[in-house]
Design a binder for these strands. Structure first.
Lengths: 176, 176
DNA sequence: ATCAATTGTTGTCGTCAACAACAATCTTTC
DNA sequence: GAAAGATTGTTGTTGACGACAACAATTGAT
C-alpha cells in the first residue's frame, strides 16, 4: 500500500499540481469548507448577464414543473401559442418570429404533430411551405396550457413582486 | 415523371396532413409569407420567461462577441471571477455558489487549467478536495477580462438604457 | 430556359443542465 | 477502533438547445 498512496482519482491533478505541501492560501481563513452563503462574488454582482442567467434558470424550472402534468416545455408552449394566434403561418415565419432556427423547429413540430396538437397543411399558394394550424385537440390543450402558464406567472410574481414583474416586462419588451 | 410527382421531401406531411385543398385559414389575410414583423404573439407577450429567454440570448451573444479576442465564455468568466475573489475555494463550493453542477465544473476547470489560468492545489485539510487558485497568468488575464466585460456591460446599458439596467440588477439581485 | 433565392429537412458540432454511477476520502456512530 | 453513511471529484449518458452546413424541391427573377 505504501508504494502508491495516490493511485486512482485518475487525472486528478495531472498537469499543474505544483504540490506545495503547506501552500498558503493567501486567504487567511481557509474558506474551502463553508456552507456557500458567505462567498463573495466580487465583480459578478453588477453583471446583468449573470443575474439574468440565474433568473432564467429559475423561471424555466418553475415553468417545466408547473406544466409537468401536461408535459409541455417553454419552447413548445411558445410555438403553439404563436400558431394558435396566427393560423396558417409557415415554419419559416414562426421560426423568425420566435428567434429559433428552422432546423430546430422541424423537430419541435414533429413532436407536436405526433401528439396531434399541430398539423402541417400543404400551402395552397407555395408548394414548398406548410401552413401550420392547431388541431381541435391542440386548441383545447392550449387552453389548459395557458391556465397553467398563468399559474406559473403567478409564481414569478410571488418571487420577485407583482410590480417588479410588470417593470421587467416593460424593460424587456424590446426583445419580444 | 408523372408517375410520382411528390416523391421526396421525405416525411413531409406524414401523419396528419388532412389535405384540405383550399383550407380556409380562418385568419382572413393569409399571413404565411409576411416579413415576420406583424405577427401577433398573443399570450406570449406578458410572459416573463419568454422575454428573459430572448434577452439572455442577446446578452450572451454580445458577451461572447465582446470577449472573443480572449476566447472566454460567460461561465468561464464567472468561475475565474469567483476564484479570484475567494482563493482556496473547493470545487464543490464554487459549483454551489454559481449554481452549476460539480460535474460540469470539472470540464470548465480542465480547460482553464490547460490554459494556465487556474490551478488545483490539493487541500491541506481535506485530501478529497482541491483548493482553487488563479495562477499569476490567470490574475493578469482576469484583469483584462474584466475590462472587456465592463465594455460588454456598457453595450447592455446602451440597449436597454442606463437606468433600466440598474433597475434590472436590483430586481434580480435575489438570484445572484 | 437558366440561375439565384427560399423552404423544409437532415446531419453534425458544441454548450449546457440533469442525473446516475464510482473511487477516494471524511465523518458519524456503535 | 471498525463499520456505516455522507461528501468530493470524476466519468458517463441523456436530452434540450443554438449554430452551422449541406441537400432536394420549389419559386422567382433574368
Amino acid at each position: 500500500m505504501a508504494s502508491q498512496q495516490k493511485t486512482s482519482r485518475k487525472a486528478a491533478a495531472t498537469a499543474a499540481a505544483i504540490r506545495r505541501p503547506q501552500a498558503r492560501t493567501a486567504n487567511g481563513g481557509a474558506h474551502a469548507g463553508e456552507a456557500g452563503d458567505d462567498i463573495g462574488l466580487d465583480a459578478l454582482v453588477g453583471h446583468v448577464g449573470y443575474a439574468v442567467r440565474r433568473f432564467q434558470l429559475w423561471i424555466f424550472q418553475d415553468f417545466i414543473k408547473t406544466l409537468a402534468t401536461v408535459d409541455i416545455r417553454p419552447t413548445q408552449y411558445s410555438v403553439m401559442t404563436v400558431i394558435g394566434a396566427n393560423p396558417g403561418l409557415s415554419q419559416m415565419a414562426v421560426a423568425k418570429r420566435l428567434g429559433i432556427e428552422r432546423a430546430r423547429l422541424v423537430h419541435l413540430l414533429d413532436s407536436l404533430e405526433e401528439r396531434d396538437f399541430v398539423s402541417r397543411i400543404p400551402s395552397a399558394t407555395d408548394r414548398r411551405s406548410h401552413a401550420l394550424h392547431l388541431t381541435a385537440r391542440g386548441k383545447t390543450a392550449l387552453a389548459r396550457f395557458k391556465r397553467l402558464a398563468a399559474e406559473h406567472e403567478r409564481h414569478v410574481a410571488e418571487k420577485i413582486g407583482k410590480d417588479n414583474r410588470e417593470r421587467l416586462l416593460q424593460i424587456l419588451a424590446c426583445f419580444t
